[in-house]
Amino acid sequence: MRTKNNNGMGWLFASPYLLYGLIFFLIPLGWSFYLSITDWNLIAPVFHHVGLDNFIKALKSPGVHAAFFVTFKFMIVFVPMVIASSLIVALVVHGLPRFKGLFLIGFFLPYLASGVVSSFIVKGFLSYNSPVNTFLRGQLGLDINWLGTPLSALLLVAVIIAWKFTGYYALILTSGFESINQEIYEAAAIDGVNGWQRFWRITLPLLYPALFTTLILSIGVTFGIFTEVYQLTGGGPNFGTNTWQMEIYKQAFQNLSAGYASAVALIASVVTFISIFIIRKFLEMWGKRNGWT
């Protein structure tokens, strides 16, 4: 009887989350599955079932192909960039004798900045007639089309997002540094270990739990990039920055193809799930090699 009561209480306490999950996750997910086999445009009173046509069309679409490859290109550029920068920030802050919290807050602030605002600032900063470009052209003879080539546009977006997330990941890595037992370093110093060996052989393996978290989070970010791309490049040039979210937005809200956009969104979620699963397995293998189970 007591167990039954406890179960009831458990369900009661879990009910807000369960309701939330049902209304904002499960029902929309089911609706999205249903929409993906229709040609609905959000307005028409009649639904036409099109079977798997939307999925077939999506798999042949240049926009979807671009979204697939652009995401991995972003990952290759963005993940090492943000991990390296947040590691540097975390190392610097960790080494500070005082005011660590204050500095961490400072680095964390860009995370709170609006993507729209920062994109506008970058756009102005890099415009053809900005002081930076006027200087580069006049003094160094460099005429850079920052947002005009797929590679430079992708690099630029990656830098902006890395700037935004560096402070946040540095916060996680700093807590990782704090949890490493200082006695290990002392023992290593007695054994004559140099700074380089100390970092690669002790710090990095012991930082694994924090690194694992930041790596998975940053990989997740690459599948959800939208604001910066929407503001700066619109997915161009030549689909060079066309992310999954950008493609879904274009199809749903510009072309008004809600059914097709749902199919693209489902393909994107499958790709995201599989990619993160594989990467997670590799990271766990690396962890196991260093004694983390």
Partner: peptide
């Protein structure tokens, strides 16, 4: 033709 991002190109006479 200039297609690079530029600020107020007509107003500035660019």
């Amino acid at each position: 033709i200039l297609t690079k991002q530029s600020k107020d190109p007509f107003e500035t006479g660019l």
